[in-house]
Design a protein around this nucleic acid. Structure first.
Length: 417
RNA sequence: GGGGGGGUAGCGAAGUGGCUAAACGCGGCUGACUGUAACUCAGUUCCUUACGGUUCGGCGGUUCGAAUCCGUCCCCCCCCA
């Protein structure tokens, strides 16, 4: 695939992929296309794994890296203590232990997947005294300016603590610090970070003069067709950590992407070229039922995150569960297919309705009975509509494992000893 | 410090003494349709194999009977100083 002459410039490509929501200056285009920029992306250790929502940002950083720029990944050990203001209200504060744990998990994960340089803003924030904070930095922040930022403004009615109000100052310090120490001249973030990024730029300009060549770039939020947040599956958040979201679950999440959005996701979550994606777009239009774009998306992402072997396994499980009859598979295939599910232990010879409750499939017996009555429960591939049906290990598929299906595509495995 | 308005099921929001396990909307779940979709339609959504039990910020009280009345405590928002 030689196409050197009509290859897009970096900035143009980012735009085409829909990765640019806004930039603080048009000069950034020139910098990115022809310069060599040190930039940073930050995230706070609010969880012990990144999720699919973070993925496009990190990929974006990787795209820049491949064009010769230098990424710095900041995990906010300090800012995590404070919590950035979100529209829904005040955050509950995380304990030091949790933050430490999360920090370690995230650092490890990012290093393993992307190999970026990591920094922790706790290192340069922890020794600032309250007096220094107010004298050396607070003076540069005008309250009126801070109040006009969306993150704060949106909270003025419902209330915001002084703690969260101060968050943007801390984040500004990060940008300033990285500019001074590492010549970092660009901060990239989600579109909700615009206010924090620009206030960091303000701080740098006030300290170092208004002619410094520093920039901010925000990426649009990835959404579903109905405008809601992308990244929640039936079982919850789609995590990048395999032990939290298996390769199979990740595959399922992506292969079920909406027709309207799958091209958008391909652009943002894969390195596939414009030619390949344009071709897939045609296929979505002409033969949507084949879902080739969805399958390609799932393949690219799962392979990148978990490797080809995990991808193959995810496809195999999918084929066994959705295409074939689970009972026709041999023992090896079954144990392979059933691997990767969270397995609940249930006593031998338990009634189906109790099994559903004990395995946390149903939240109450009433609900379990309702589903069984409606015919939405299958045990090892057979529909069971008798709630007193006894689930026994002698009828298990293999290794005392029984497969339970709820509704169209929710599978659970139970183990009986 | 002063004045006002609030806290009802996952969320939003009705309800101001019995007809209320609590309208309605959203969300969730299931079924039909289908491409393991979307849309649409139907059912369902506190627990209980259904007798009953426990709910409307917490506690206490009035009453035959309370989400609804009284007392008290906790929390939130707005306005004025």
């Amino acid at each position: 695939m030689q196409k050197g002459k009509n290859k897009m410039k970096l900035f143009e490509e980012l735009k085409w992929r829909g990765l640019i929501n806004d930039v603080t200056s048009p000069d950034l285009e020139e910098q990115l296309n022809n310069g060599e920029v040190t930039f940073y992306i930050g995230t706070d250790p609010t969880g012990d794994s990144l999720h699919i929502g973070h993925y496009s940002s990190l990929l974006c950083a990787k795209r820049l890296k491949e064009h010769g720029h230098h990424p710095i990944m900041l995990v906010g050990g300090a800012t995590g203590f404070i919590g950035d203001p979100k529209a829904s209200g005040e955050r509950s504060m995380l304990t030091k232990e949790t933050l430490q744990h999360n920090y370690e998990c995230l650092s490890k994960q990012i290093e393993a997947l992307f190999g970026f340089t990591m920094v922790n803003n706790y290192d340069w924030t922890k020794d600032i005294t309250i007096i220094e904070f107010l004298r050396d930095y607070g003076k540069y922040f005008n309250i009126n300016y801070m109040l006009s930022k969306d993150t704060v403004k949106s909270r003025l009615d419902s209330g915001i603590s002084y703690t969260e109000f101060s968050y943007m100052i801390l984040q500004s310090l990060d940008f300033l610090h990285l500019y001074e120490e590492k010549n970092c001249t660009l901060q990239i973030g989600g579109q909700d970070q615009w206010g924090n990024i620009t206030s960091g730029l303000e701080l740098i300009r006030k300290k170092h003069g208004s002619d410094v060549a520093c920039f901010g770039l925000t990426m649009p939020l990835i959404t579903k067709a109905d405008g809601t947040k992308f990244g929640k599956s039936e079982t919850g958040t789609v995590w990048l950590d395999k032990s939290k979201t298996s390769a199979y679950e990740m595959y399922q999440f992506l292969v079920n992407s909406e027709d309207e959005k799958v091209i958008d996701y391909l652009k943002k979550l894969t390195f596939l070229s414009k030619e390949v994606i344009d071709d897939l777009e045609e296929k979505v239009k002409n033969e949507p039922f084949r879902r080739e774009a969805q399958k390609m998306l799932a393949k690219e992402v799962v392979s990148f995150l978990h490797g080809d072997a995990e991808y193959d396994k995810a496809v195999k499980i999918t084929n066994a569960l959705f295409k074939g009859n689970i009972k026709e598979l041999d023992a090896d295939e079954i144990s392979d297919a059933l691997h990767g599910f969270e397995i609940s232990e249930v006593h031998d010879a338990t009634s189906l309705s109790d099994v559903l409750v004990q395995a946390s499939i149903a939240s109450s017996k009433r609900e379990a009975r309702e589903w069984i009555k409606q015919g939405s429960i299958q045990v090892n591939g057979e529909k069971i509509s008798d709630e007193a049906f006894l689930v026994k290990k002698e009828n298990a598929l293999s290794q005392n494992r029984t497969l339970i299906k709820k509704g169209k595509r929710n599978y659970y495995v139970i183990f009986q000893k």
